[in-house]
Design a binder for these strands. Sequence first.
DNA 1: TAAATATACATAGCAGGGGGAGATATAGCG
DNA 2: CGCTATATCTCCCCCTGCTATGTATATTTA
Lengths: 115, 115
Amino acid sequence: MTGPDKELLRGTLELIVLSIIARQRSYGYSIINTIKQQTEGRIELKEGSLYPVLYRLEDAGAIESVWHHPEGRGVPRKYYRITPEGKKRLAQLRKEWHDYVRLVTALIEGGSKDG
Amino acid sequence: MTGPDKELLRGTLELIVLSIIARQRSYGYSIINTIKQQTEGRIELKEGSLYPVLYRLEDAGAIESVWHHPEGRGVPRKYYRITPEGKKRLAQLRKEWHDYVRLVTALIEGGSKDG
DNA sequence: TAAATATACATAGCAGGGGGAGATATAGCG
DNA sequence: CGCTATATCTCCCCCTGCTATGTATATTTA
């Protein structure tokens, strides 16, 4: 992704990707475009970031892949869909995310009384 | 820090530390304890994580340090306080955080229509 | 006195994840 | 043919938080 909050993506990328796939099964290239469109260009994922995430998720049993070869010819796509295991993982990641947001939001609030 | 959301800390640590110092000037060891107490033990920062952050913030001109030598004897403390530059940076980081939270929260919602 | 614990700062080296950049391949357009 | 879009894959770099350790002071405990 581009921009100043580059580091923020860390720890949330797996959650984001799993959420996208949970909504509708899709393939790498489309996941990148989906994220780009739904964030109005604020998150532009790179292949070098996404594919390793997909492999990790698949290795962990959270998603499954199937190759789709379009009629006769065309570029084959590797579709991913979420597994029951992945749904549990997604629920867990969502909870962790919301908990962490509450924690940090509380931490960074409060006026300065320093001098 | 400990726990599953280890990676989430990344990108927010600078924001958290700067927030603590903005509220009240303090020193490394106390910052660790402040964070631990205010998060009820959920974020236990390590020295190896904190000190480099403090040095980065100081190099960037966001905070200033002053050594305090307690009366006669005692362990000297290095107090940090936020600079005007740091207050701008803090405002910026807070904004980025809130924006990113909105972005991700929107992204990861939505029911699954997959099969 | 000695050992253990808490306070307090510093740093070398490691691990893991996201990015940059390029390779590979298909396909449409001028 | 070159350019662009689609689509996947992979090597290597960089950054950041963690592990581990070293240094030093002070208090408690035996």
